[in-house]
Design a protein around this nucleic acid. Structure first.
Length: 119
DNA sequence: ACCTTGACGGTTC
DNA sequence: GGAACCGCCAAGG
């Protein structure tokens, strides 16, 4: 990996904090990563996650969905199916293309975050 | 340097 | 619900 944007690293690190069985939306990740209003950037960053992971840890990109509680990849696409399966493997209930946000959205503990994120 | 393209989101009809 | 619009900004052409 050559020169990687700091914003991306912050996004990856934030995504690594999403616990198993929970999901977050793009805007939420952007806010937590200190990039308010830049949800699209989160999408970009996730598309560039190093396959090996980041700083020795994997980046659970599949735990990020859109604000409507849906997987953002086109229905029926390879990536959509893969993301859905990963989520279901973690017992996140996906009905059709919908995930119940009240039930599965990550509610981060702020003090815990402060401890984990170094920015 | 300009234009287009996104794994987006909120506002408004 | 859903669709149209606009704001957002890094990459790649």
């Amino acid at each position: 990996m050559t020169i990687m944007n700091k914003n991306y690293q912050q996004v990856w690190q934030t995504v690594q904090c999403i616990p198993t069985g929970k999901v977050a939306n793009y805007g939420q990740v952007a806010d937590l990563a200190g990039l308010p209003g830049r949800a699209r950037l989160v999408g970009k960053a996730l598309g560039m996650v190093p396959k090996e992971g980041w700083q020795g840890k994997t980046v659970p990109w599949y735990r990020v969905i859109n604000s409507q509680g849906k997987i953002s990849f086109p229905l029926g696409s390879e990536q959509h199916l893969k993301q859905k399966q990963y989520l279901q493997d973690e017992h996140v209930v996906v009905i059709g293309n919908r995930i119940s946000m009240p039930s599965f959205q990550w509610q981060p503990d702020l003090t815990d975050l402060l401890y984990k994120l170094d920015f």
